[in-house]
């Protein structure tokens, strides 16, 4: 797999899909930005997939997550592991990306240098 989702992340996505009553929705991950402020990760649910998206499937058949990544984002996300943590100070999805050399949460700016 070119990207990885931890078990915690898969469970969390399944739970969220159930809470919004959209069991068939895709889970999209990607990169935003590109200006001088830097890049940041985002996650979102998506009802439709673009033909050029990369699709990865995780989890058991009755609790499946179909992840979508657009082509450009995939360039940066190749090799990334997505985890989910619920801690006192921070709750959310975390991206461990060998390219940027550190772990970041959604919305946190990072650069490649």
């Amino acid at each position: 797999m070119a990207i990885q989702l931890t078990e915690r992340a898969v469970t969390r996505v399944v739970e969220l899909a159930r809470k919004r009553q959209t069991p068939e929705a895709f889970f999209r991950i990607g990169i935003r930005g590109g200006g001088c402020s830097g890049l940041s990760y985002f996650v979102d649910f998506s009802e439709t997939a673009d033909p050029k998206d990369k699709v990865f499937t995780f989890g058991a058949p009755d609790a499946q997550v179909k992840v979508l990544i657009d082509r450009k984002s995939y360039l940066f996300l190749n090799g990334t592991e997505v985890d989910w943590k619920a801690e006192l100070m921070k709750t959310g999805f975390e991206f461990h990306n060998p390219l940027s050399g550190k772990s970041c949460s959604c919305g946190e700016s990072f650069t490649l240098a």
Partner: peptide, 21 residues
């Protein structure tokens, strides 16, 4: 400001990416 610095920022990313890969 984002728009006027976009070409410059793109050059930086390309340079960083080619060094990282």
């Amino acid at each position: 400001l984002d728009a006027v610095t976009a070409p410059f920022a793109q050059r930086r990313i390309e340079r960083d990416l080619s060094l990282a890969l």
